[in-house]
């Protein structure tokens, strides 16, 4: 049993327990959020299981598919399930103040800034594919394990910094978050085109690189578009309010 199975199985069980406890105490929490969190955690467990890891080790397309699920799609689901909000519903009120104090600490604010999160995410990918790090990863299991944890954690951090629903005081403005999102999406698209055109990483056969890069380009923009939609929805909801008394008036 790998560390991923233990950690994400425990997190999913904890979330389900919190959901059940909140429901029992009459403070409902939507079922779709439970389904989202458990589904995302199970997706990470599934792609980190031995057969899928073997495929990812042998085949660059497999590596890209694993990266896509573990680094972009599943983290988005984990963050959008608002696990911190659910936890704060289940603990005494002064824990909420403690959480806010923790998030307001300067190192945490720097780490949770969209620019840092994007650098960790896209910068890590550029370092991995454009240098010889990819072949180093294939020959060192310890480095590969560390890198997969990096994918998952950096993906969660990025989704949370851009459009996380959990309480976080003094967040950077919407303009900052949208700008960082657009730049990182463009960097992602550019990186995949460069990989297909200039044959990066060079230790992989060219046809695998081209198919993997196309997968990265087309499938990778779906979670990014979803993230952009969630952010845009926050913006239009604050900009265009429901007119007072308009509901139920139109015959």
């Amino acid at each position: 049993m790998s560390g991923f199975t233990l950690v994400f199985g425990a997190l999913a069980a904890l979330y389900a327990w919190g959901w059940w406890r909140a429901k029992r105490r009459g403070r409902g929490w939507p079922l779709w959020r439970l389904a989202l969190f458990v589904g995302s955690a199970l997706a990470i467990v599934a792609v980190m299981s031995p057969p899928s890891m073997q495929w990812a080790h042998d085949d660059f397309r497999g590596h890209m598919a694993v990266h896509l699920v573990a680094g972009m799609i599943a983290p988005l689901g984990l963050v959008m399930a608002a696990p911190v909000s659910l936890a704060l519903k289940n603990v005494p009120a002064h824990w909420g103040r403690r959480w806010v104090r923790f998030v307001s600490l300067p190192p945490i604010r720097v780490l949770g800034h969209p620019v840092t999160a994007a650098l960790l995410n896209i910068g890590g990918m550029m370092a991995l594919y454009l240098t010889d790090l990819y072949s180093a990863m294939r020959h060192s299991p310890g480095f590969a394990l560390w890198l997969h944890w990096h994918f998952v954690v950096a993906g969660c951090l990025f989704s949370w910094a851009i459009a996380g629903p959990d309480p976080a005081p003094r967040r950077p403005s919407l303009e900052w978050r949208f700008g960082v999102l657009v730049v990182s999406m463009a960097a992602h698209a550019t990186l995949s085109k460069w990989m297909a055109r200039f044959h990066f990483p060079a230790s992989v056969p060219l046809d695998q690189v081209q198919q993997g890069a196309e997968l990265m380009f087309y499938a990778g923009e779906l979670p990014e578009a979803l993230l952009a939609y969630l952010l845009a929805r926050q913006w239009v909801r604050s900009r265009y309010r429901e007119p007072a008394g308009a509901r139920g008036v139109t015959p």
Binding site: M185, A186, A187, L191, R233, V236
Partner: peptide, 24 residues
Amino acid sequence: LASDGLLHTLELVMLVIGGALMLR
């Protein structure tokens, strides 16, 4: 290729923002 990637991203973002705004 970099300009192509940027243009492609901008198109996608325009589609998403336009859709969110029109829905609202």
